[in-house]
């Protein structure tokens, strides 16, 4: 068989192109993980309910926050600009800026509200990440890969809830007691609440739910028949900034 240099190069280029085409096609045609939601959930969908009438965050209770931050090695940098937080409390009007009831008599308006990652069903942070370092699991948990994150902070800009923190410096010196069962982070990566996926796989409830002595936090699968589903479907509840189409999965019971 006679092959001159020119046709060899042509064939080689064609071969390379064919090799690249398959992964490229796979990439484009990857099935979308999104499902039709809002309404009864089909399949496994993890979610959380915060009962605002039972929660005593306004009275100085920080049991859930302390538990969360200690099991996940969340540092206490002591500087508001570099703060790292997975679960924290804010004023009612900060959590729900659109729920302005001009003459509401109930003490709700002055209450404090626990906030965390909403594990959105349509998470804007996942969409923008250029390295898939943050992604949505089939059960709905929005995950973070601290080893793949390049620290571009695009997800922080995209999150409408301010749920993401960045490690502006090495966090390890600022962790009081290192919890060996969960990794510490390096500087330059983003982190946030993970719905305690490491505890769930051991059959445990999330640390915050377990730590709450008031029973204000409920966690579970959101499908007809479960306790969580009955609670959410029978009681008036709010979710944060639903108008943005993110379909948040933390439900605030009133």
């Amino acid at each position: 068989m006679n092959i001159d240099r020119r046709s060899f190069i042509k064939l080689a280029a064609l071969g390379l192109f064919a090799m690249a085409a398959k992964p490229a096609l796979d990439l484009i045609s990857r099935p979308s993980a999104a499902r039709a939601l809002d309404g009864p959930f089909a399949g496994k969908r993890l979610a959380m309910a915060v009962d605002l009438s039972a929660c005593t965050a306004g009275d100085g209770c920080v049991d859930c926050i302390a538990a969360c931050h200690s099991v996940h090695n969340v540092p206490n940098i002591g500087n508001i600009k570099e703060e790292i937080k997975w679960l924290w409390e804010v004023d009612y009007k900060q959590a729900f800026p659109d729920q302005e009831n001009g003459f509401a008599r109930e003490p709700l308006q002055d209450s404090r509200v626990l906030v965390l990652c909403n594990h959105c069903d349509n998470p804007p942070c996942v969409k923008v990440c250029p390295t898939q370092a943050t992604w949505k699991r089939d059960d709905g948990i929005v995950m973070m890969d601290y080893h793949r994150c390049i620290g571009c902070r695009y997800c922080m800009a995209a999150c409408p809830y301010g749920s993401r923190s960045f490690n502006w410096r090495d966090p390890r010196p600022y962790i009081q007691t290192i919890e060996e069962s969960y990794p510490t982070r390096t500087r330059g990566v983003v982190e946030k609440c993970n719905f305690c996926e490491e505890r769930l796989s051991d059959g445990l409830q999330p640390a915050c739910v377990e730590a709450c002595s008031k029973g204000a936090l409920k966690f579970g699968d959101l499908k007809p028949g479960t306790e969580l589903y009955e609670l959410i479907s029978s009681q008036f509840n709010l979710r944060r900034k639903t108008e943005l189409g993110t379909r948040p999965q933390v439900y605030y019971l009133l």
Partner: peptide, 26 residues
Amino acid sequence: FILVDLGQPARVFNIILYPTPGSVIF
């Protein structure tokens, strides 16, 4: 300027290693 803004500049090639057409940065 993008490079100096990254928290983990050594990992910048993750953008190429894990191409993500859904991300505008890609």
